[in-house]
Amino acid sequence: VPRLYEATEGSVRFAGADVRDLEHEDLMRHIGIVSQETYLFHATIGDNLRYAKPDATAEELEQAARAANIHETIASFPDGYDTVVGERGYRLSGGEKQRIAIARVLL
C-alpha cells in the first residue's frame, strides 16, 4: 500500500483508487508504518513522540498515547512523558516501544 514496491500484476487500491494514481505525498498523509524493530532516541517519551510533530501539545501527546493504548503505562512512570527511555528505548519492553512508535505514527 505505501508503494515501497510497485505492483507487477493487478493493482493495489486504497479507498478505491489505484495507489499508482495517487500523489506520493497524499498517500503518505494517510498511511503510517511501524516496523517490527522500532527506533527510539535517547530522549524523553515526549521528545520521541514529538519527532512526528515537533509542535505537538501535551494534550495531543496524551490523545495519541491513549489511542495506542500506552498512556496509562507512561503515566505510571515517575517522570511520565518526561521519562528518558535510553538509547533505542532499552528501558522499555518490546511492546511498550511498539506502542510508543504507534502513538508517534498516530500523532
Rank of each mutant, 00 (worst) to 15 (best):
I31F: 09
D79S: 15
S11I: 00
E62K: 15
A43H: 05
N69I: 06
Q36H: 09
I31Y: 06
I74Y: 00
R88H: 11
D21N: 13
R20H: 14
P2V: 01
L40C: 00
V84S: 09
T8R: 13
Q36Y: 08
R50F: 11
R3D: 01
H42K: 07
A58Y: 09
V1Y: 04
A68V: 04
A15V: 06
Q98C: 05
N48S: 04
R88T: 02
K97T: 04
S76G: 13
N69S: 12
Y90K: 02
Y90P: 03
I70D: 00
F41V: 11
P2S: 12
Q36S: 10
A68R: 02
T38K: 02
E96G: 09
E96C: 05
I74W: 00
Y39G: 01
R66V: 15
H42A: 15
T57C: 14
Y81M: 15
H24N: 11
Q63F: 10
K97H: 12
L92G: 04
A15Y: 10
D18H: 07
E37P: 01
Q36V: 09
R91M: 06
D55H: 13
F41T: 10
D79W: 06
P54E: 15
I70V: 15
A101R: 04
E60G: 07
V1A: 12
E87S: 14
A68C: 02
D82L: 11
G16A: 04
L92W: 00
A103D: 01
G86V: 05
D82N: 13
A64E: 05
K53H: 15
G95M: 12
T38V: 15
E62C: 11
T83K: 07
S35N: 13
E60H: 06
V84H: 10
P54Q: 15
M28K: 14
A52H: 05
S35Q: 13
S76I: 11
E23H: 14
E59F: 08
V12E: 05
S11C: 08
A17K: 13
V84P: 07
L49W: 12
G16Y: 00
E62N: 08
D79P: 07
R50Q: 11
D79F: 10
P54K: 14
E72H: 10
T83D: 06
G46K: 04
R88F: 09
L27T: 03
G80W: 03
T73I: 05
N69T: 05
E37L: 06
R13H: 03
T44H: 04
L4C: 00
L61H: 10
L107G: 01
T8F: 02
H42Q: 12
E96M: 10
D47F: 04
A75M: 14
L49M: 08
G16V: 02
R3E: 01
D55N: 13
I100E: 07
Y39S: 07
I31W: 08
A56F: 03
R91D: 08
G80C: 06
Y39K: 07
E96P: 01
A65K: 01
R104Y: 08
A103S: 02
T57I: 12
G16L: 10
A64Y: 08
F77W: 14
V19L: 08
R104E: 02
Y81T: 13
G95C: 14
H30Y: 00
G94A: 14
G32Q: 03
I33A: 08
T73L: 08
P78A: 09
E87R: 13
V84L: 14
H71I: 05
E25G: 10
I70N: 03
E60R: 03
R20E: 12
